[in-house]
Design a protein around this nucleic acid. Structure first.
Length: 424
RNA sequence: GGCCCCGUCGUCUAGUGGUCCAGGACACUUGGUUCUCAUCCAAGAGAUCGCGGGUUCAACUCCCGCCGGGGUCACCA
């Protein structure tokens, strides 16, 4: 490695939308490159044509863009080591397969080329995550390197590419641990120096089984559509397998890159805990500036709301929502007059009183608040009950943003109308 | 099943022989602030450190066995 720059890669196969566990691995690869001022490469491993799902590539780009995990080199923007799509590199692999065969490290078998693995001894390496790993060679069979149709398998293509693209750190999932001896063998046979390697653990579902599509594992895109912020997702993923301070600090990608340590990635599988994600999302929403939140919330609104109105509403609700998609329902009463509530004799008294107060009162927060509170006090009424009756009549809900501020936004005429309607 | 990896509160973790009858965070409970909710503040509950043996004056920390979980055994990645 020595003086060479750090280059990491995220190499998904376009066989569907990567789920959030894969994305965590991508995040770590990204952070490692950023930490050392290196390069982060996105490479597409599409050697299994049969499993390729159309549209996957676009989704992969979409996820990276959404999270801000921008590659320095990828199929779109290119780079010095392209092409970055393996099926476009087929001729490159041929040369190395021949070299492997010539050296007696690989052999033909029914039209395919297999690597010849030793039958005894152990293959041992230092894994950045697990430490020393040792696998008996007899457990590793002669993997196919080049399929009979001339297309390379992962084992061959990924290793040739990692070397040619000068990858300094291979960061991938634990499922590749057992085939690492094959990869080491290829590097060794070709006389190349093996990169640092880290096998990061899995993300498990709440039932402790591997997160997968059939267990409802979602992609980042689905979380985005529910109203999770990219900042929150990154922050959550970062702490799921890495520890820093109190494990709840709000960190930007730049912050994370600074403190990330490839030697301190957790060894054990982590369980996906939606509550922790929710915590980060809520915290990040709260931290967003009103202007920023305004733009981000728009795609989630069914109501047509003018910017200046939304600007007034946002401060009242931003620390009351966990996800962006919760806001719309929360602010409905600002625009739609709720159905009249069922009133008791007592709540009618409250509303009639409030109506008489509000009809002639100055229309400011302080004036409304004190007038209403004073009136309730004079009658000897419980303020909470009094305001709740008002809240229900005006918003149709027991859980709302602050009442007086909301009233100001809705406007005096409409407020009076709603009260009258409830008294009718 | 063979091989490999892992095993501290529900969850994410701190912890590398004594300062840990185990600390923090999220979630949870309670109280305070408050017109509701949320925020914020405070307090609390929650882990016999997977189990059993060793080694040691002393182990969550070292060794062995067991159990549990996961990964992998494709011309998939």
């Amino acid at each position: 490695m020595s003086q060479t720059t750090v280059r990491t890669r995220y190499a998904p196969s376009p066989t569907g939308i990567p789920h959030i566990g894969n994305t965590r691995t991508a995040l770590y690869a990204f952070l490692l490159a950023r930490k050392y001022g290196g390069k982060f490469i996105l490479r597409i491993e599409d050697t299994d044509q049969k499993r390729t799902v159309p549209g996957s590539l676009e989704k992969i780009y979409e996820i990276q863009k959404f999270l801000g995990l921008t590659p320095d080199e990828d199929p779109q923007k290119g780079g010095l080591f392209g092409p970055y799509i393996q099926t476009q590199r087929r001729q490159i692999y041929q040369k190395y397969v021949q070299e492997l065969v010539a050296k007696g490290v690989a052999y033909e078998d029914e039209g395919a080329i297999r690597i010849k693995m030793p039958k005894e001894g152990y293959t041992t390496w230092h894994d950045l995550v697990a430490g020393k790993i040792s696998i008996p060679n007899k457990e590793v069979d002669d993997k196919v390197l080049l399929k009979s149709d001339g297309v390379p398998t992962y084992h061959l293509a990924a290793m040739i590419d990692d070397h040619l693209m000068e990858i300094s750190h291979i960061i991938r999932g634990v499922e590749y641990i057992v085939s690492t001896p094959v990869h080491l063998k290829i590097y060794e046979a070709l006389g190349w120096e093996f990169p640092h390697i880290a096998h990061v653990p899995l993300l498990l579902g709440p039932d402790r089984t591997k997160l997968s599509k059939r267990h409802g594992a979602k992609s980042v895109l689905e979380y985005r559509d529910e109203g999770y912020l990219p900042e929150a997702i990154n922050n959550f993923l970062f702490y799921l397998g890495f520890s820093y301070q109190d494990n709840s600090a709000l960190l930007s990608l730049a912050d994370m890159a600074k403190i990330f340590d490839e030697n301190k990635i957790q060894k054990q599988n982590a369980i996906f805990d939606i509550q922790k994600l929710n915590h980060f999302n809520k915290a990040w929403i709260k931290r967003l500036s009103d202007e920023d939140l305004l733009e981000r919330i728009k795609p989630f609104l069914k109501h047509q709301v003018a910017d200046d109105t939304l600007t007034k509403i946002l401060p009242l609700v931003k620390e009351r929502i966990t996800k962006l998609d919760e806001l719309d329902q929360f602010i409905t009463f600002f625009f739609d007059r709720p159905e009249p509530q069922v009133q008791t004799d007592q709540t009618k008294k409250y509303l009639a009183d409030a109506l008489s107060v509000l009809e002639k009162n100055a229309w400011t927060k302080e004036a409304i608040e004190s007038a209403l509170a004073n009136s309730a006090n004079e009658k000897g009424w419980h303020r909470g009950d009094y305001f709740m009756a008002l809240r229900l009549a005006i918003t149709g809900s027991r859980v709302t943003p602050p009442l007086t501020e909301s009233m100001l936004i809705i406007g005096q005429d409409e407020i009076l109308a709603r009260l009258k309607q409830n008294l009718a």
